[in-house]
Design a protein around this nucleic acid. Structure first.
Lengths: 168, 168
DNA sequence: TCTAACTTTCAAAAGTTATTGAAAGTTTAT
DNA sequence: ATAAACTTTCAATAACTTTTGAAAGTTAGA
């Protein structure tokens, strides 16, 4: 298999994976392209390689920068901006986790807190079941929240060394 | 807050969360509705409560059954089918993990294996970088794969007791 | 200050995914 | 065998998301 073919397959696969992870296809493809590029790339390069429009490239590069998955690199004497990907997978996962936690888990936790206010009427199966289920999910979601926080704060070496060994 | 309001909020929130989790909105809303229902519900009930069409209700109930998140319950002497949700959150997470692993992680691992075939040309920065990045991601993804397998096989009590304590 | 090289925006178009509802299919009871 | 009670299918349509590209905005350096 030659490099072009391999690169293409990888970019496709990363794009598909991304779309399951709250990252849109183009955004993930740009990230993939930068991941395998040994040198920083300009917006022009990215547009040409992925055959996407200027607007699309720009929007998604910005989003990647916001997520902390891509960095801007300025070459002295060049107006143009160049971009590099975060290549440490541990960092990539951490940064995606941070965003998804904020966008997904936290709003749910908020609603769960709110609906705790529903008054339970003794002997009323409907309200009793509701309270029970909400309490249960709340417990679970709070645990997930704490777990993700630890993961986000954890050091890669501790994680790989201690954590992964214990669940084998 | 009264039960109707709380239920509505919860169903909304669960629907939104679901759509970030590979479960479509309606599918997640049906699950939420069944979660807080103290008794099994028929397709009719679900349609009426969520104001969705027969076809939509049917398709998503089947999908929930396929995922193992909802069970069919037959009441003797009644033609109608009734449905109950899996209410154990640990089981819910396990079952979602099984599906997502299959749909997301496994195809990526397959592509990563494939593109390992790209021949590295010594002294060629492009192929060297490509091999390095792929090897790295492969390592990471394989670890994730093993980790999720353990999680899927793990017992809830071990998980809550041992695992969660260690990451605090 | 002005110009050229670049980046950002945004409304319209294309593409994708979910939903409807009527028609077809299935099962049970008589 | 038939009717009634239900479930499933699927083509049309609606809703939502992504992409485009031209126009507007910004900035560095002469």
């Amino acid at each position: 298999m030659d490099l072009q073919e391999g690169k293409g397959k990888f970019i496709q696969a990363w794009g598909t994976l991304g779309s399951h992870w709250g990252i849109n296809r183009t955004m993930a493809q740009i990230h993939a392209l930068l991941l395998v590029s040994p040198t920083p790339m300009s917006a022009e390069n990215i547009m040409a390689d992925l055959k996407i429009s200027r607007g699309n490239a720009n929007m998604n590069i910005r989003a990647l920068i916001d997520w902390g998955l891509v960095y801007k690199e300025l070459v002295p004497g060049q107006r143009k901006e160049f971009f590099v990907a975060e290549k440490n997978m541990w960092e990539v996962v951490r940064k995606i986790t941070i965003q998804r936690k904020k966008k997904e888990l936290e709003p749910v936790l908020k609603v769960l807190q709110e609906v705790t206010q529903v008054e339970e009427i003794q002997g009323n199966a409907e309200t009793e079941e509701f309270s029970k289920v909400i309490k249960d999910i709340n417990l679970f979601a709070s645990k997930a929240d704490t777990t993700l926080d630890s993961l986000v704060k954890a050091d890669q070496h501790w994680f790989v060394g201690t954590f992964l060994k214990m669940i084998k």
